[in-house]
Design a protein around this nucleic acid. Structure first.
Lengths: 240, 240
DNA sequence: GCTGCAATGTGTGTTAAGTACATATTCCTG
DNA sequence: CAGGAATATGTACTTAACACACATTGCAGC
């Protein structure tokens, strides 16, 4: 938006145009018990009694849009160095019963076994992504949109490692991919596809305390975890 | 955003949170003289004197976010049935000198030879995308982000046909792809890649008035043009 | 009207990626 | 110590991508 004085603008008062609130909503994914989970909170609006909603908040007047989801993550999970990706902005007039709110959706990949992790509110808890039916607001569509983007990204960019401990076996990694993609994969082809990407480092260590032949342990090659995807916005920051 | 009463919210007044304006910016692409063009307007802000900016506008209080770019397109080009795709939302505090504005960027593919097309403002004109240096606001980054998304989409989804007349030759189509991607393509492999996608219908007609052997004319297979990409939002509308 | 040029139309072989499936090895368990 | 179950590795087949060669058609100029 560059031209503040269009015909449409002049017809309305200045105040009208500051009657839209801006928020962010976070689809916070984690991986537990071989299933993809999402962090939800019990809705406190009576219109959505009994339903859960995503974690979000209004964007502060002095807060960069990008900073808001990091703050939400920090406030809700105690984590500050998380993977976040903007997905889509939802702005239908009637999407929020309390007023006009345009929301930008982000998805996040966190490891809930991380030492810093703690949930700070009783009504917040993890839900399996598969089988989720109805959510408050338009949050089911937001979740579906984020899940689709996650699925599209996961084979191209090394981002799923944000969901795993530092050391993991190929079986654990495959289980995670299957949970995200919702399909079964062939062990041998999966191994090849991943090793050829050169994302992994063989630690020359073995699994322990497993009830079968232990597998090799790997870690993500240093320098990749945070890279994930690079937006034009980020590129510019690097060159300035 | 679901919970209006977070700790952060309560610390501030209600009015603070309606001090953010919401806008949309359109990266309107067209294809002329074998080059990809973008529609820009001379900036009327003295901070950006001599610079061009994208076409955008504030989102009305009673206007769906998605409706705003269609309105901008309609007002600026006379076109109402255009291809639009949401790309990214930009919301840094200082991105607009006149105040806090969060903007959602869309790209659009239009055919400027369409009968309805007309530019309604003298300061609006087409610029070649390649070679563009500086734009007003953060519009260069917005443009780059949209161009990247266009490039990523163009081989997977039949969207470029929005830039062409109804009938076209494979050479014209290839020239367009080369202009978008910024690379040269092999004629024979390009032909195969496209024909196997089953996007095209052979019209059994030939080019006319060309100074060489005329090529066959094709059109897009009916029912594909508008489909392009389908978002979760759109899917929901279809099933409701 | 014939010939050469330039662009269109079509084909072929090579390489890389993805898929389906087979076999051998290792460790835990009983 | 034998059997089972999971790991580790290998091979053949199919598909897509890439590099390049040849034949065809219409226009232009002599």
């Amino acid at each position: 938006m560059g031209q503040l004085k269009t015909a449409a603008t002049e017809r309305r008062s200045h105040q009208d145009f500051f009657n839209i609130a801006v928020s962010v909503d976070c689809v916070i994914f984690s991986y537990q018990d071989k299933a993809l989970k999402v962090l939800l909170i019990k809705s406190d609006l009576k219109e959505f009694e009994g339903l859960y909603s995503l974690l979000g908040d209004l964007v502060g007047p002095d807060e960069d849009l990008e900073a808001a989801p990091y703050r939400v993550l920090q406030e809700r999970t105690g984590l500050h160095d998380v993977y976040l990706e903007q997905v889509h902005t939802f702005g239908n007039i009637a999407r929020h019963p309390s007023g006009r709110v345009v929301t930008t959706a982000y998805f996040s990949l966190v490891n809930n076994k991380c030492s810093n992790f703690q949930i700070t509110h009783d009504d917040v808890c993890w839900h399996p992504v598969s089988g989720l039916k109805k959510l408050a607001f338009d949050h089911k569509i937001i979740l579906d949109t984020c899940l689709k983007q996650l699925r599209d990204a996961v084979m191209e960019h090394p981002i799923v490692f944000n969901l795993l401990p530092e050391k993991f076996s190929l079986r654990e990694l495959q289980d995670l991919y299957e949970a995200i993609l919702g399909i079964e994969l062939d062990r041998r082809n999966f191994r090849k596809r991943l090793l050829v990407k050169d994302w992994l480092v063989d630690l020359n260590e073995m699994e322990e305390d497993v009830p079968h032949r232990p597998g090799k342990l790997y870690k993500l090659r240093p320098g990749l975890k945070k890279s994930g995807r690079v937006t034009m916005e980020m590129k510019q920051k690097l060159t300035v």
